[in-house]
Design a protein around this nucleic acid. Structure first.
Length: 258
DNA sequence: ATGACTGGAGTTTCCAGA
């Protein structure tokens, strides 16, 4: 069984103990992290648990990592020549493990709608697809997990009418992410639970949003068909979101019968 | 109490997050 977890931790320094306890308890093969918010990842305690740490981040912002029980054969950061923006190098990291490619991505938030940053977010999705097109085939074994900052479908927000036109739920964002998926990536959670409503991965810290379950599904584990056909289970770890001093995102889990 | 956010930078207040 291959267990993959993705988790926007909103600062690895603040969430370090939670992440260590999570690894001890759940023992995932891969833990994909976003928003580490550090330039230098505090690797030592994670290595003591038997995990290799691959990280790309900047001072106080962004930051993505892959923690793995196995050593990677290769690591790539950013989009290479396709997208030289400095932030791209803090938002995408990939590791190859034999014929398996694993990526951790943190898509820009893009607020406010219609700002330059919003268009940067849309561009990010198109560059990501271009990057995959150029380097891979949908027949390859690829896992792309992370915080995509888009709720794809009406059932991915708690009130579709309220969210219409809001950041993370505009038509253009949903189209940009759909275009990425159309290359050959499958939303593992939706594959298993096509109609499920009210299960989210992010809740605002404000307004007791978690207690009221006023959230959005912004985190995804995407997989190409050769992997998705072996998908066994998907889940959102609500318990971890309910701990004291939580991240605003919950960990998401996908298990493959491999 | 009739309302309640968090983290980082870098100095006590602003910005980003979504």
């Amino acid at each position: 069984m291959l267990k993959v977890v993705s988790w926007n931790v909103n600062s690895i320094n603040v969430r370090k103990e939670q992440v260590l306890r999570f690894l001890e308890e759940k023992q995932p093969d891969f833990l994909l992290l976003q928003e580490t918010k550090v330039e230098h990842f505090p690797k030592e305690p994670f290595q003591r648990l038997g995990y290799k740490v691959y990280h790309a981040g900047g001072k106080g912002r962004n930051g993505v990592a892959i923690l793995s029980k196995e050593e990677a054969d290769e690591t790539v950061i950013g989009f290479g020549d396709l997208f030289q923006d400095v932030q791209a190098k803090e938002r995408l990291i990939g590791c190859r493990f034999k014929d398996l490619y694993v990526f951790s991505v943190y898509v820009p938030n893009g607020a406010p709608v219609e700002s330059d940053y919003y268009y940067y977010k849309l561009e990010f999705f198109y560059h990501l697809r271009e990057y995959l097109e150029k380097n891979f085939s949908p027949q390859d074994k690829i896992i792309l997990g992370g915080d995509f900052n888009v709720a794809l479908q009406p059932q991915d927000v708690y009130d579709p009418l309220l969210f219409e036109g809001q950041i993370c739920f505009t038509e253009r964002e949903r189209k940009a992410m759909s275009y990425l998926l159309d290359w050959g990536l499958i939303d593992t959670f939706r594959l298993l639970y096509p109609d499920k409503k009210g299960l989210f991965t992010w809740w605002d810290y404000q307004f007791s949003a978690f207690k009221k379950n006023l959230g959005m599904r912004l985190d995804y584990i995407l997989a190409t068909k050769p992997l998705a056909q072996h998908l066994k289970e998907c889940d959102v770890d609500l318990k971890t979101r309910g701990l004291p001093k939580p991240s605003d995102h919950a960990p998401i889990i996908a298990m493959f019968d491999l």
